[in-house]
């Protein structure tokens, strides 16, 4: 189970990398493993304004449909279009090629956990 130290996590198993006012978002290694083979990703539209905690993307595995919640509030400024043809990147590289969207932050976030807190959360 990989939990990189330079990222923040949420209790909904998303990760976020905050650089200046832009948050790159995806789902955690734990989430992709629990979901199984991802076969479809529905990306948000560029320009969409999301609230912290709002469902803004969908990942579908062989058996299940799961919402992905925005860790931060803001405007979607970039999406990972490669996932439309290669959704399996969410499984194989959840923190790299499996990123879902970049959100220009407007301030609000859900509770963000650091590596240690997320590890504890997973253990509980």
């Amino acid at each position: 189970m990989s939990i990189p130290a330079d990222l923040k996590y949420t209790q909904e198993h998303e990760w976020v990398r905050i650089e200046d006012d832009v948050a790159t978002c995806g789902i955690s290694d734990h989430a992709q493993e629990a979901l199984g083979d991802i076969v479809f990703v529905e990306l948000p539209e560029i320009g969409r304004v999301v609230a912290a905690g709002e469902a803004y993307a969908v990942v579908e595995s062989v058996k299940a449909v799961s919402d992905v919640y925005a860790s931060v509030a803001g405007e979607v400024i970039e999406i990972n279009e490669a996932l439309e043809s290669e959704p399996e990147k969410v499984n194989t590289d959840p923190y790299g090629g499996g990123w879902i969207a970049k959100i220009k932050m407007s301030g609000d976030t859900v509770e963000l956990l650091d590596e240690a807190a997320y590890t504890t959360f997973l253990e509980e």
């Binding site: 199984g36 083979d37 076969v39 062989v62 058996k63 399996e88």
Partner: peptide
């Protein structure tokens, strides 16, 4: 078993 370690797609 719904799947084994390799996963349903494999």
């Amino acid at each position: 078993p719904v799947q084994y370690t390799n996963g349903a797609l494999k």
